[in-house]
Design a protein around this nucleic acid. Structure first.
Lengths: 129, 129
DNA sequence: GGCAGAATGAAAACCGTTGTCAAAACCGCC
DNA sequence: GGCGGTTTTGACAACGGTTTTCATTCTGCC
């Protein structure tokens, strides 16, 4: 029975930015879906394990999820106001991380890079209002 | 009465990598200090507010703290095995983040960048043992 | 219809963190 | 040294997101 899991993924696919589990749960319930919070968590976990969604930790420790267009390595440019997210490639950063690691004798380098800002529409809303 | 707070900072200063609140608490108690977990959290919070320590969230949602040598903006190269941490500057990354943001019409760009790897000594230990 | 195994979800457990609040420590002052 | 007023402390409870438990429900298969 994967229908719940599909429902969870659908919410993510139709979302512009990162969403929390509780958030997704609330939306599904509001839409009349019969689903438990546990199932939402399980669905998100298995989607994340399958590499179908990206996971991030917010500053207050909440896990947030996003169905990204590309399955390849990328980073995120996130509007800190509306959550609008753009997937960005950063070959320069990849190289930099490798170089920095090598320089200090580190191997098996991985890295996390997230960029935050205020997107164009939020900026104009702010200046208008 | 800042003695507890100093004790907390001392632990961080003498630590090579990032430490969790519970971790610091355990070390202080093990060393015979009379201190409560609440106080450790408060000390860490105020140290972080004062910019005297850097805070990070681990993948499992725990906050970890480190007394960094420089007060200026920098990133971390962390050994995922022993926690050994090197502070690294990344002007190229700073520029890249700004450029990526501007390219998509984002303003007030900030970013988080952490690099993980296996440090030299851990690598040799692993290959030796 | 009946069965084995997977999926579900309500409730409880977990765990790091934060809030509460009374006791203790500290301060300037006399 | 003794006294108020403020600050710090810490045991404990509360909080919130996440995970586990476990009995029930569903699914595919015969």
């Amino acid at each position: 029975m994967t229908s719940r899991r599909e429902a969870v993924r659908d919410v993510l696919v139709q979302s512009e930015g990162f969403r929390s589990a509780q958030d997704i749960y609330a939306e599904l319930r509001a839409g009349g879906a019969k689903i438990g919070l546990t199932t939402v968590y399980r669905a998100l976990q298995s989607l994340a394990d399958a590499g179908q969604v990206d996971v991030l930790r917010t500053d207050d420790g909440e896990s947030v999820y996003r169905a990204c267009a590309t399955g390849t390595h990328h980073h995120h440019l996130v509007c800190r106001r509306c959550g609008h997210t753009v997937e960005v490639a950063g070959p320069a950063v990849e190289r930099w991380a490798e170089a920095v690691g090598a320089e200090h004798g580190f191997t098996s380098i991985t890295h996390t890079v997230e960029v935050f800002g205020t997107c164009g529409s939020c900026a104009s809303v702010a200046s208008a209002g």
